[in-house]
Amino acid sequence: MIDFIGDLVNFYLIPGLVLGSIYALGAIGLTMTFGILRFANFAHGETMTLGAYFAWTLVQLTGWHPIAVLPIAMGLTVLVVLGIDRGFYKPFRASPTIMLVIASFGMMLMVRSVVQFIWGVQMKAMVPGIQMPVVLFDWLRISPKHMMIIASVLVLMFAVHYLLTYTKIGKAMRAMSDSPELARLTGINTEAVIRATWIIGAALAAAAGVLLAVDTHVETMMGFKLLLPVFAATILGGIGRPYGAVAGGLVIGMAEELSSYPWIGTEPLLNPGYKAGVAFAIMVAMLIWRPSGLFRGKVY
């Protein structure tokens, strides 16, 4: 029995939790840009890639641990994203949503190409070598990197929660996500809110990229591969609902991992190769039966 639980926890639940919390970080930014700027930002995945590459470079330069350079990588990513907003999205502020969506799609391709041009297409290791897991209570095996990832995500989420609940700009972000028109009539500085949204979204996306790279490796398609589950998490949680995005991310991450557990017999229920399909299936099901998501988000 303890073996059974041990397997389930060590090889499915903990990886699911790690993956899910990385999705959650990505989904918070995506859901907020969706809610406040009213468009699905396809370039959000590349923001994560960019964060991972900045961190990799910083690790090479300083020799520090990736978590130590994380804040700097987040800051650099924020600067790039603010520049992109100024140059590419701001001119479209009053345009129909579809133009912004297409602009972000173009931005996704451009950022990826620039990353490939600068850093090459070869896979890179963020943390060299293999880490031995720590064993607790004789059966719980958790690797230090997973503990670090979960701890970092918790810190970032508390920071976001504090910002959204207790600061003026955070409340204004939620207000604008509720109704951009009323926010404008109320005299809320909408450009400042948009800037704050990009800053938080980009910082969290960069963190998601770095943490995924710590768990796996750095490659130029990593952000694009994250995009689908992150979109699924956003829709599952409800568009414009940051807490929904966290819940959605965790559910998608867990569901992906648990889908390959041998629930029936000894074979995996679903070939691990179909993990991405699980996120997609959840997203489609939500869009059909409950498009407002778990947390009553917006429906477009």
Binding site: K171, R174, T186
Partner: peptide
């Protein structure tokens, strides 16, 4: 405005605080 004149997901107090944003 006639409709959509509050922020529904914000608390009453947060709505009032937003009124004082400027």
């Amino acid at each position: 405005p006639q409709t959509a004149n509050i922020f529904p997901s914000l608390s009453v107090e947060e709505n009032l605080e937003m009124g004082a944003f400027v």
